[in-house]
């Protein structure tokens, strides 16, 4: 991805997070905790598990549809980050060749099963993380982290990072464009030019930090970054948490997928 593509991509995700749907309105703490529980449950399935993972797709699909998040956008983002997991996982079919299942007479090796399991877990975990940020604004995530016990200093500077992320990306984009305009078609940026470009951006950043500090002092800054608590856990949040826990517990403990399959077979065969 080029710089511009990444910039617009992150901007789009950021804008989605400020939508107003009932998923967006849930307390950020509830969403953070639910997401973490979901992630742990998904990766707690053993190496060769495939079919039992199927019901878990309900979680991202519900968040995505109720939260009005475009599915193709999320899928595209998932594909972009998939190489590492695929790269490591693809060795399994070649190294673990014991036959695990015979489907319609075709033997399927354990390696393929574990690879497929990695892919499913990848899709579930990455989509859950993306949907958390697509349905919760970053400042809200930070406030949730603070109230879940993360150090104040860490959260404060994380909020500053977010605030100046877009400002600095735009600044970087201006520097890159200015360089491209004078490079007459030589597209690539060499290491030396790159170092100077980053150095320039760095100096501007430090100057900006000074100005921000002055602005903070001007408004009475004394070392703490104060914010008002804004959210209260409501009945809807508790219901959401309870539903998530029940969902995860049921589909982690019972092999629902196979049961459904068995019932279907009995009915139709």
């Amino acid at each position: 991805m080029t710089f511009d593509e990444r910039y617009f991509d992150i901007g789009r995700l950021d804008r989605l997070s400020y939508k107003d749907t009932c998923v967006h309105r849930l307390d950020p703490r509830a969403k953070v905790i639910a997401t973490v529980m979901f992630l742990f449950t998904v990766i707690s399935f053993p190496k060769y598990e495939v079919v039992a993972l199927a019901p878990f797709f309900l979680f991202p699909v519900l968040l995505m549809t109720v939260g009005e998040i475009p599915i193709l956008f999320i899928v595209k983002k998932m594909i972009i980050v998939s190489p590492f997991a695929i790269f490591i996982g693809i060795f399994n079919p070649f190294l673990d060749t014991r036959t695990a299942v015979v489907i319609a007479g075709i033997p399927v090796s354990a390696g393929w099963l574990s690879f497929l399991s990695i892919l499913l877990k990848f899709a579930l975990t990455i989509s859950a993380a993306l949907l958390l940020i697509a349905t919760t604004s970053f400042p809200a995530v930070c406030h949730a982290l603070r109230r879940l016990g993360f150090p104040a200093l860490f959260v404060s500077q994380l909020l500053f990072l977010y605030r100046y992320l877009f400002v600095l990306m735009e600044e970087a984009m201006r520097i890159i464009r200015a360089r491209e305009m004078r490079s007459f078609g030589r597209r690539s940026t060499g290491m030396k030019v790159f170092a100077r470009l980053i150095g320039t951006l760095f100096l501007r950043t430090v100057d900006r930090a000074d100005r921000i500090y002055y602005a903070m002092l001007s408004r009475g800054f004394q070392g703490d970054v104060p914010t008002l608590k804004r959210s209260r856990i409501a009945a809807a949040d508790l219901a959401f948490m309870a539903a998530t826990v029940a969902f995860l517990a049921v589909f982690r403990s019972f092999r629902v997928t196979e049961e459904i399959g068995r019932i279907a077979q009995e009915l139709f065969l």
Binding site: R163, Y214, R219, F221, V225
Partner: peptide, 25 residues
């Protein structure tokens, strides 16, 4: 003091937090 560049002045992540920063201090 109102600064030349609002991006330096508005340092908090939301408008509400930013306007509340002074009064909270």
């Amino acid at each position: 003091v109102v600064f030349q560049n609002p991006d330096d002045q508005l340092f908090m992540p939301t408008v509400f937090d930013d306007v509340a920063f002074g009064p909270l201090n």
